[in-house]
Write a protein that binds this DNA or RNA. Sequence first.
DNA 1: TGTTAGCACTCACTCTCTCTGAGTGCTAAC
DNA 2: GTTAGCACTCAGAGAGAGTGAGTGCTAACA
Lengths: 346, 346
Amino acid sequence: MELSQRKRIILQAIVEDYIATAEPVGSRNIAKNHDLGLSAATIRNEMADLEEMGYLEKPHTSAGRIPSEMGYRFYVDSLMRRYSLTVDEISGLQKTMDRKYDQLEGVISEISDIISKVTKYPAVVAFPKENKGRVRSVRLVLIEERMALVVVVTDAGVVKNRRIHFSTDIDYSAIDAVSGFISKNLVGLSAADITPARVMLMYEAMGEYGELLKIVISFVLECLKEESARVYIGGASNILNNPEFSDIDKAREFFSFMDSRENVGKMLSLMGDDSDDISIKIGSESGVESMKDTSIVVANYHVGDKLRGKIGIIGPTRMDYARVVSSLEMINDRLAEILGRMMGQD
Amino acid sequence: MELSQRKRIILQAIVEDYIATAEPVGSRNIAKNHDLGLSAATIRNEMADLEEMGYLEKPHTSAGRIPSEMGYRFYVDSLMRRYSLTVDEISGLQKTMDRKYDQLEGVISEISDIISKVTKYPAVVAFPKENKGRVRSVRLVLIEERMALVVVVTDAGVVKNRRIHFSTDIDYSAIDAVSGFISKNLVGLSAADITPARVMLMYEAMGEYGELLKIVISFVLECLKEESARVYIGGASNILNNPEFSDIDKAREFFSFMDSRENVGKMLSLMGDDSDDISIKIGSESGVESMKDTSIVVANYHVGDKLRGKIGIIGPTRMDYARVVSSLEMINDRLAEILGRMMGQD
DNA sequence: TGTTAGCACTCACTCTCTCTGAGTGCTAAC
DNA sequence: GTTAGCACTCAGAGAGAGTGAGTGCTAACA
């Protein structure tokens, strides 16, 4: 059944009042604060309907109503108005983000602090994962006597290196030859392409440097492997500003969950990957038991189509969704710019 | 004034009971639970003395006594008995730490979880800082057309790299020549040695590749710079198991502090660097206002004499110091082994 | 002189009870 | 369909009494 326009307005008023005050909302207050031209009694009737339909809940008989998960969902999908950040907020944000970063790691770890500062909620950021990379370049470089470096550059422009020690002296030109051979045979390949058969062939062709080859190849494979999402968390303490977490057990549940980056990463990976839109999970929608009283708002970011990650915030279900969504969009845009500038040169 | 043997025993009993129960300790309980051969009244007299001397405090008139900071300090310095980890604890620890790590980062980030699991307190780990490094090796490697990699290996065995893009094609042998020139001029130098005068000389000698040189040198300097301590935090939620943090304001104060790695890093850096012993700051001794109700226990670890970092825990002043100290020692030993094995090959 | 028993006193905590006020649902009138 | 009015509910605040763990002091004891 469709909601009448009047019910929608009342539901919206309730959700927004509750988000603002964290107190159950009563009919009288709505009549007073929102100019709906309706008496409290009428609103009461509508609220009774909305409750019956599942959009509202009563904490107890003589309290006002609060939105149910379904109420929030309807609000987010159909009622929420776009929140415009104030000029001050925007220029503040611009300023914070307007500095030179030269390492991906640096941007990503700082962005979580920025998000939490802007939204006043705990922020989570997933370090970009590489998208089924291929070897773009692999080189073996003699760094000093008996020590060489394998340098692998992947499709996504990520550079990794590892040292290799030799027990006997090795010739400069030998290293170069091996390096060239490996490069010729591996560049352009994905992890799946580097089959045991191919490795065997190479191994045989290598002769005395077979062992060296093995080390290099295993490192290359490691570089191509999808790494488990690294997660940064910022401003976790912000959660304590919300009255729903002044119960110490609720707080502990939250912080225990956040203590494990793995948990957080898993939860993030359950949120839609592909959509360019912001995705929102309200309460139990996240499917994570210990997060059933919190909502998660996540945006995806990409660098080209190779690197992709997520930024988001975690807050109580009673969260200022409108504000969070706008802020995340804003930050995501700026982040895209920064990352584009950083990686775009490739 | 020296404490009599009897006062020491009573103080010890009070500290240990309070650590165990988090309840103010009364004279009767001490008489009952510790076989001191003294009546409650006598103990009461001694407690009054200890309070007057500053070792004990009363939360209010009709409660028992709790140790003051000075009381804890005396306990830690003079009374604390060595705690022996149980066989189970030890073998559990051995097992957790007995796996192959191949990245420094991996060990360090995992160690904080291990510490907090063992001690049940929030753990902090400072990523090792390099000790006024020198350039051991610097190489310029052509990775693909128009892209080269600067690879710097420092004294401490740390490898760093950065990509350089060229707007025009550059010759393989030219890169080699530049690489050799830079290497010859920079290897063995510390940051202080790379003076502007020296850079100018090199710049002039380089001719058309001067710009390239500049980029390389600025990167080398960056590599040699002491990096601001990176800090890992594990098991922060553990703090909430202590009744002194069931007050939400106390909890917020704690988590706000921990939210800023910078804060934590600064606090860690205030703890003695050189001592091989474990250092303990009790309450306000840390000098950090918002940590005045917590104590910090820190151990230093080194790899050779080049890399050094810190591991430690943060807990309420009422902390099981004996247990924490033993656990940290144990973990630090194992960590030294692991790091030695990892880095020792250099 | 040090130790102990005894006792009056203190005070946080808990429990119970009452009161208050915000809010509801229902009914009847508009 | 809307609204005014009214009886009813119930969480939360506040007051008061009772409890018990603890103290300090005094006087007696070894």
